[in-house]
């Protein structure tokens, strides 16, 4: 009897405190997102997007996706902010004001996308539902076979590196192409750097 009630409670979702934290984190995220959309100062924007990443990392932790949270914190809040700051240095500090008319189309896209997302959640299985397809089918199999197949305890790593290692290979390709892309467009940094340094030295002499 108590067992059944226990499972039911688990299926019904996390308890009230977690829900409250959920709501407050999501609210903060929404506020940050709106602030990002309205701000014109690029520096503040970069900082706020870092905040946004950290908030989402927190939220991932709440959702028990620690690996994703960790990645989000390192990539979203860490390196992205640093790189965007670097990019910002090459341009102006304040974004130009949009024409109000130009905002209509993106607004429409956002509204429609949001509406479809809401629509989709109606039939989405409950959070943490062990019987949902996502949790019962392949996920179960991964959990069961992992140790026998690969022999390491972290299932996330074995899925990423072995079961779906090719995806990771592709992602490394994406990272690599990103590097190539920036180098292609901006040139090699050290060349222009040494050129400007030389100029400077020449100026001092």
């Amino acid at each position: 009897m108590s067992d059944v009630a226990n499972t039911a409670a688990q299926v019904a979702g996390p308890d009230l405190s977690v829900i409250l934290i959920d709501i407050s984190v999501l609210t903060m995220m929404a506020i940050t997102a709106i602030a990002i959309a309205r701000l014109r100062s690029l520096f503040a924007l970069v900082m706020l997007s870092g905040v946004y990443s950290l908030l989402s990392a927190t939220w991932f932790v709440i959702a028990d996706a620690v690996d994703v949270a960790f990645t989000e914190a390192a990539v979203g809040a860490g390196i992205s902010s640093a790189l965007i700051l670097g990019a910002m240095l090459l341009t102006v500090r304040v974004a130009k004001e949009d024409k109000p008319l130009k905002r209509i189309a993106p607004m429409l896209v956002v509204v429609i996308t949001g509406a479809i997302l809401f629509y989709a959640t109606i039939d989405l299985p409950g959070f943490g539902d062990p019987n949902s397809p996502a949790n019962s089918y392949l996920a179960q199999e991964f959990l069961q076979r992992n140790y026998g197949d690969i022999g390491i305890p972290n299932v996330v790593t074995s899925v990423l590196a072995s079961y779906r290692g090719f995806d990771t290979f592709g992602e490394v390709g994406v990272v690599f192409i990103a590097g190539v892309a920036v180098a292609l467009l901006l040139g090699f940094g050290e060349r222009s750097l040494s050129a400007s340094l030389k100029k400077k030295k020449g100026g001092e002499k």
Binding site: L83, I150, V175, F176, G179, F188, S192, L197
Partner: peptide, 29 residues
């Protein structure tokens, strides 16, 4: 296998990120 490919990922990611950073930073020393 996993250790080697993770090393590959480490190298690729660190190298690419630094390349990107240098490309930006080199422009505005």
């Amino acid at each position: 296998g996993i250790i080697v490919i993770e090393l590959g990922v480490l190298f690729a990611v660190a190298g690419s990120m630094l390349t990107i950073f240098y490309a930006f930073a080199g422009r505005a020393p």
